[in-house]
Design a protein around this nucleic acid. Sequence first.
DNA 1: CGGGCAATCTAGTCACTGTCAAGTTCCTGG
DNA 2: CCAGGAACTTGACAGTGACTAGATTGCCCG
Lengths: 192, 192
Amino acid sequence: MSPQRPYHHGDLRRAVLSAALDVIAAEGPSAVSLRDLARRAGVSHAAPAHHFKDRTGLLTAIAAEGYAMLATALDEAKDLRDAGVRYVRFAREHPAHFQVMFAPELLRENDLELTTARALAGKHLRDAVAAVPSSGRGPDARLAGVAAWSLAHGFATLLLSHNLEGPMGDRDPEEVFRTLTGMLFARTSGSD
Amino acid sequence: MSPQRPYHHGDLRRAVLSAALDVIAAEGPSAVSLRDLARRAGVSHAAPAHHFKDRTGLLTAIAAEGYAMLATALDEAKDLRDAGVRYVRFAREHPAHFQVMFAPELLRENDLELTTARALAGKHLRDAVAAVPSSGRGPDARLAGVAAWSLAHGFATLLLSHNLEGPMGDRDPEEVFRTLTGMLFARTSGSD
DNA sequence: CGGGCAATCTAGTCACTGTCAAGTTCCTGG
DNA sequence: CCAGGAACTTGACAGTGACTAGATTGCCCG
């Protein structure tokens, strides 16, 4: 099929995105080159620019997509612990998205699609925090959210940068994280 | 003096490092260019390569320096909480180092200076965890370390990526972090 | 059925980058 | 005083992102 490569690629946008995700997961965001992605997709060197305008535009699109996926994942969480587990799982299953999402200097921060997706993900995260009975709306509600987010985010980040392979051995990361939340939040639920 | 720029710069290595740190703090590691650093230092475009060989070599040197500084900071910590506070403080005071330290794809991982500095920092971190009375050496000692590290690292990372400015307002980050550790570790010290 | 139009892609250019190889200047040790 | 090496310069090459003008294609509307 594809006689001898038709003039129109078909779905170049998706192809470039997916190739970019591969490269980022393997060698980090700084290794993505529009020309290289074009080569992989079998199109001319400037074709990707028509879909993303910029290198920054491409990365911004990836980040926005990531926040959208994270938002739906968090939306289905039963409680705060489940949200944390889903956060970590998301980072493991979509490492490329995760990396780009938290590299603000690579993104066009005023991009509409990005900001709305991020806001939605943030809302679902706050909802999960608010759903914890005790910390419903104390003055520390925000701080509890920061604590939970820090724990999950730090764990996910250290995981992706291969810093937990020593201490964790070959245990399942999700299980380890679940244990961690148990250790930390066990008795804090009814603190005051 | 310095007639009209002597042939030898004097301390080009330090000058390039410091310029690189400025750029990284302002625009991230992907914005550093050896040629730009050379221009800032007022030397020819290839001079920096003599001290660092590579772009990767430069970043590796920065990471190693960062781990060394972090190691001394952690070494002076009184207890685990203090170590966490120092970890966060280090990230705030040396954001450029911190970013590069945890971007493995930008570094020469087999560099001797880097690996030894990192090992030393890791040792001091484990020491701080082991110094907690209860979790001296239970089977969960490692997990406690992972929990503490995740919390501090996540907090520091979110701080540097400007994700905590909303929830924290203009409170002092170190104070907030101290509160967090109080919330989480308050009653876990004598768990079993 | 077919003209035209917009989306898509090609091809060429420019300024910039990292890296290499070969020179030049300076300092130091013998 | 003068070899030799370290610090730096100069020049060149391939690869990059961004931009432009132009070619090709599919498709809508008459």
